[in-house]
Design a protein around this nucleic acid. Structure first.
Lengths: 143, 143
DNA sequence: ATATTATTAGGAATAATTCCTAATTAAGTG
DNA sequence: CACTTAATTAGGAATTATTCCTAATAATAT
């Protein structure tokens, strides 16, 4: 897990400017367990910095993705973001839309094996399992 | 790998109508190694059935997804489709956009383990590795 | 303090997908 | 085979997440 200060100084080291908008976005992503959409990030960040625009949120997310400081997955035509960037499994609830992370050490090995076999140069991985979370699953049963 | 006849009769058994549009779309998906987008499917199918509309392609794909006869993955804001529906890894080239499949037997085990740990009911999985394919990789090097 | 230049706000433009409806047609029935 | 009816389709309009554009703003170096 990254710290806000680390990320900020790594951005500064690359000659990028540290703006309140960027700080607020990174701060929120580090603190939340959610995998928020751009719009949700915008809504949340706006509470403290009302002038932040949605286009700035998108631009900042692009920047953070490029620097590998956040991870993006697409769920039902919408991008969802996460500061948890090491290999893991994303569990996606098809009912309530929540996303949980699970670590699985064998993923790295699978990736290396697939890279060798396919001769691809792998730059990013994304392991998704879609279904119903524990709470939505039981709600269904009781109907 | 499914056969066209199997799929058609399974659709018919559910009371669905067998139309030339549906046959053409399923037939193409079964024959191709590509992971075509809806638009590409439309273009290809149109050559033989010029009257097929894009909205019918989308509707048919929805139907086939629901019946678990095709798999969908989203790449750069665009859905890509594949008749290869058992667990596998999708290798996605970030340069040319091609997608290769690789089998990996341990995926099933990982999925079961994650389901147990998370208490999710898993309905669908999607394992993606993004990077450069062998050919795009070497092109980059030579620049 | 000032100059420079990256960044931002805000809205317009884009593009994949979904939605809508009248026309068509697959398939069951006598 | 002709007829019925309800599913399916074509075509285009509507939707929506994201990208693009540009003048205004503000972070940073000097």
């Amino acid at each position: 897990m990254q710290q806000l200060e680390q990320i900020i100084s790594s951005l500064r080291d690359e000659g990028l400017r540290i703006t309140p908008q960027r700080i607020a976005i990174v701060d929120y992503l580090l603190k939340t367990e959610d995998h928020p959409s751009a719009e949700l990030i915008h809504k949340v960040v706006r509470k403290r910095y009302p002038m932040v625009s949605l286009s700035t949120v998108y631009k900042t997310l692009d920047l953070l993705k490029e620097k590998k400081l956040v991870n993006e997955i697409e769920v039902e035509g919408e991008a969802r973001f996460d500061a948890h960037t090491d290999e893991h499994i994303n569990l996606i609830c098809m009912k309530c839309g929540k996303i949980d992370d699970i670590d699985e050490e064998y993923l790295k090995e699978i990736q290396v094996k697939a890279a060798k076999k396919s001769k691809y140069l792998i730059l990013k991985s994304n392991f998704e399992l879609h279904g119903y979370c524990n709470s939505c699953k039981s709600k269904t049963k009781s109907i």
